[in-house]
Design a protein around this nucleic acid. Structure first.
Lengths: 236, 236
DNA sequence: CGTTTGCTTGACAGGACTCAACGGATGTGG
DNA sequence: CCACATCCGTTGAGTCCTGTCAAGCAAACG
């Protein structure tokens, strides 16, 4: 982790209009600049660990982060992937809990750290920020409820199909038409909630069935409809 | 469902101090009375169905409700149990979504229905209600993340042990020391995320191992520590 | 260029689901 | 109050999915 000389201003942040700070009055947004600190993380570096007390929130300026829980057997379960403009770590801070998950960077990632005091000031202030966080938490809660049902009822094949689609929606495609995130097989397995070996087998099955194309670390979707059907996704 | 002549006043509600309306100024609480309607539901009756647009929220005055998703195979997955003082259905309303779950009563239940317009007025108003909902949603989100990891990594036995403990914490014991909620085997299975038959087998195993006592529909915990250990619960 | 890490495949065992059958409890209507 | 139907709980048998272990190979890395 490296502290970055503060040259990023929220008002000019490219991700502002897709972030939770969208539609917040400009003067309030500029207020964020005052206390924040910018950091740069390498792949594998950690924003926060499960069990810590939150000291603030992290706004991702550029990069990708995985949020995961470590089960009792030590296996990881990724519960969310976050990218540009996402605010990470707000759940524990606003819920008054310790972190229940660990956040680790999937690639070179630049974040702005907003200290607890400042965020709470803004949230409890006049602004509609509390409202925005509330809506956001409620939406995430809806997604979580879907994940729960999927894990309990779908097979590894079905879950894998759905996860591939969700990850593509989250990060989109790169210039070559591949899903724009570099995940190891183990990380795909952590998303699906299965063993690495099972994950590998299912992925190569999918390729043989013409659903996807495996290109090293990257995956290209070949038959979107096939995946939708296989994953029994009720497209929203 | 039966409409109840409105004789319940929020300010005098016995559940108010454990509900989300705790610490809300009295005059605002009294404001709720204006637009609300009280209903009475029998066991099996439904507050709302998955897919509907939310028209308001339900505050449980007395009774118990299960919130569940119906998977693609038709099997149900219970994602939450709610009781006295809980507000049900706020997630979809505040998140701006349709209901992603169905809410069905486990026993005779009396609820106060607060219309959408009124709730939104209160939430967007000066009060700290948005803050309360935000905190609540964040806490539920933390629980959901735990459930996800459990479902993905624990065995049916482990999950069952944990679920028994969680349900007891939710509803407590009745006079006879049994967990104070009447759930069918199928509903226990829906909580754990398994088949009814597996659920039955595990429950009777637990009884033989001296962990619990099965008394018809009711369960009595005999060896709390054993369940904790088996469920690998990191007591919070 | 050696070492480590990640990927892949095979073999195997066991947990969990499905199907089927049956007794008992519950509830309804005559 | 009884007969009937339905639902619920329980048990057994069989199958298959999925995780684990082991080993070989490729890729990445310093």
């Amino acid at each position: 982790m490296k502290k970055v000389p503060q040259l990023h201003r929220c008002a000019e942040c490219s991700t502002r209009y897709k972030s939770i700070f969208n539609q917040i009055p400009l003067d309030e947004v500029e207020q964020v600049d005052v206390g924040k600190v910018c950091y740069s993380f390498k792949r594998g570096e950690v924003l926060f660990y499960e069990g810590q007390m939150p000291q603030g929130v992290y706004c991702i300026e550029k990069g990708k982060v995985k949020i995961f829980n470590t089960g009792s057997e030590g296996r990881d379960q990724i519960v969310r992937l976050s990218g540009n403009g996402d605010v990470v770590g707000y759940r524990a801070l606003l819920g008054g809990d310790r972190y229940e998950s660990t956040a680790s960077c999937l690639e070179e990632t630049e974040v702005c750290f907003i200290p607890k005091k400042q965020l709470l000031n803004m949230v409890t202030g006049q602004s509609c920020l509390a409202m925005r966080f509330m809506q956001h938490a409620c939406q995430e809660l809806g997604q979580a409820s879907k994940i729960i049902t999927n894990l309990a009822q779908k097979t590894v094949r079905e879950r894998m199909a759905e996860v591939i689609l969700v990850v593509q929606e989250t990060f989109g495609d790169n210039e070559e038409g591949q899903i724009d995130v570099r995940l190891s097989r183990e990380e795909w397995a952590s998303l699906v909630g299965t063993a690495t070996e099972s994950c590998i087998r299912v992925l190569s099955d999918f390729q043989q069935e013409g659903l996807i194309l495996l290109q090293g670390k990257f995956i290209k979707i070949q038959d979107r409809k096939g995946l939708l059907k296989l994953g029994k996704v009720t497209e929203s």
